[in-house]
Design a protein around this nucleic acid. Structure first.
Lengths: 259, 259
DNA sequence: AACCAAAGGTTCGCATAATGAACCGTTTGA
DNA sequence: TCAAACGGTTCATTATGCGAACCTTTGGTT
């Protein structure tokens, strides 16, 4: 691993639960030498990718990221485009909707919308890591990713987040086959208990899957009517989003024209 | 300059006008060796900071930035907090408002809001670089930054973007004194012609200036009434924003209680 | 107030990892 | 049809990053 990768890998230790990390903690987390971590962080600081807080001297992610993310959005406006799609889909279904994108071999939630219709909602946080197994978004992505990629993911140990999480690779493969046929993934309580969610894959101009659009509802609200309405609305919204970002579904992606 | 800084400095060549850059262009722009640029970009690509488009093989900013920016926002929610403040300020003034943040020694526009009240508006783009001289935001920041910082900026050649741009360091220093007294900066056509803008500084918990909040209006709409209303509303909004992000104005910052 | 432990930060000889001139194979367009 | 420009690769040279050990500061305990 080159020096640059090493430095950037340090940024991966930041998350919602740990927004500030001191030098020693970062040394322990990364397993690198303290002097190395110090030098790398100093360089990241010079370039504004991290900053040190005035109070203690712990590091946190820096403002330069905001600028670069805004430029990324200007070049590839997935998030800005998705916001409208998410809002409309939330309005239509009365439930929480979210978009997750594939980044390397990791799936991250990146944008979401709530519906004001119901007092109880599934809550979402942006920049959270989603597992592939056990989330409808993850399954939707896996089903349409390169077969090698799916196999790599399934060959790793699969943790059960809830008693409902499916962890047997063989049964997951069977589900993926079903998703490839239907074009939509369903998960009941596989990531958070009592959450029933649907997801469809999103494709880029090269017809590669880049993420998933999902609707998450409290299981108690999934009436027969909602079980009809949500998948139909979600398919339409997914097709719209893929289209708006200039993408296209791969040959063989099920076109559900019954909706 | 270390390898990490070198790699990250390559990202600085991306901007609104140039969202995709090929290997050879990047080599020319950076003045580095082609093999070096190639290796650095390969590492940035591995970590998702850039990606290569399928069509030509040019690089563009990568999706990892979205994730990290979202985490930065989770830690320091300046943008999300500002959005509400910007919207309210736009509603109140009927004009375009924007927030810019200091990143290193560069001031960048990062968030904005329009008012639907008028058909003609000052248009804004996020992630644009603002000059310090000639923009009200830049002057507001300079006036309350460390004196060394202001002097460093003023000692560099100051480009005149319009005939109205003030480029004489001595006259700029005089203006800065005035801004320190009044707590608000005004610029008429210094960055874009026919744009009249006001700006106030925003402070962090260490009472350091981190950026500026601004209202930009077509010069033709700046009636005597607006010249009263806008500064008053802007001062209130600036104080609110500084407060909401946990910041405080430094001792001696003019508290305009006449509003 | 004396002590200790753990924090952030620094030093310096050594060896690894970055460098760049020159070199491929492809693509493009004159 | 051919040359120029592209992305990508090689390999000897050496600059650069590395880590054990060492400071200095900080905050809590006795």
């Amino acid at each position: 691993m080159g020096t640059v990768s090493k430095a950037l890998s340090l940024l991966a230790y930041f998350n919602h639960g740990r927004t500030g990390i001191g030098l020693s903690d970062l040394t322990r987390l990364s397993g690198m030498n303290k002097a190395t971590v110090y030098r790398l962080m100093s360089e990241l600081q010079e370039t504004g990718f991290v900053e040190q807080t005035g109070s203690d001297r712990s590091y946190r992610l820096g403002p330069q990221l905001l600028r670069l993310a805004a430029l990324r959005e200007a070049a590839v406006p997935i998030l800005s485009v998705s916001r409208q799609v998410l809002r409309e889909l939330s309005d239509e279904t009365g439930e929480t909707t979210h978009l997750s994108l594939l980044q390397g071999s990791q799936l991250n939630s990146l944008s979401h919308a709530y519906s004001p219709r119901n007092a109880t909602r599934v809550m979402m946080e942006d920049a959270k890591v989603l597992t592939f197994h056990g989330t409808s978004s993850g399954m939707a992505v896996l089903a349409f990713a390169e077969p090698d990629f799916a196999e790599t993911i399934l060959s790793q140990p699969l943790e059960a987040r809830t008693p409902e999480t499916l962890t047997d690779p063989e049964r997951i493969r069977a589900q993926l086959d079903g998703i490839r046929k239907s074009g939509i993934a369903v998960s009941v309580g596989g990531f958070e208990e009592d959450v029933h969610s649907h997801a469809v894959p999103i494709f880029d101009p090269d017809r590669k899957v880049i993420g998933a659009l999902a609707v998450a509802a409290p299981a108690s609200r999934m009436t027969a009517e909602q079980k009809q309405l949500i998948p139909a609305a979600l398919r339409r919204a997914g097709a719209t989003l893929t289209y708006r970002i200039g993408g296209s579904a791969p040959a063989g992606f099920p076109q559900d024209e019954t909706a």
